[in-house]
């Protein structure tokens, strides 16, 4: 996939994430996964594969943490 042409991107606060995995299940283009690494609390935080986000925002809504997920959208030039 060409990152430069993606409609959006996801930023995950890996120390707020509790690794519940709801965003991974919810993501329509399936561009999220749980990291193999552990965060400071001992959870496997979610991470963005790096490309393919459509900026639909659903991961933001299914995430139980206030600031665990931030969704960005490419601005139309």
């Amino acid at each position: 996939m060409d990152v430069a042409r993606d409609r959006g991107a996801v930023a995950i606060d890996r120390d707020e994430c509790k690794g519940c995995g709801l965003c991974v299940e919810a993501c329509p283009p399936r561009v999220l996964r749980l990291s193999a690494e552990l965060n400071r609390y001992g959870y496997h935080p979610a991470e963005y594969l790096g490309s393919g986000c459509t900026a639909c925002g659903i991961c933001y809504y299914v995430c139980p943490e206030p600031g665990g997920i931030t969704v960005l959208r490419r601005q139309v030039a």
Binding site: A9, A55, Y60, Y61, G67, T70, V71, R73, R74
Partner: peptide, 19 residues
């Protein structure tokens, strides 16, 4: 990604209603 960053805007993020 770095060169794309200025073109991206937050559409969903931590609500200002939270402390």
């Amino acid at each position: 990604m770095a060169s794309d960053a200025p073109a991206m805007a937050v559409i969903h993020g931590r609500s200002p209603i939270f402390y």
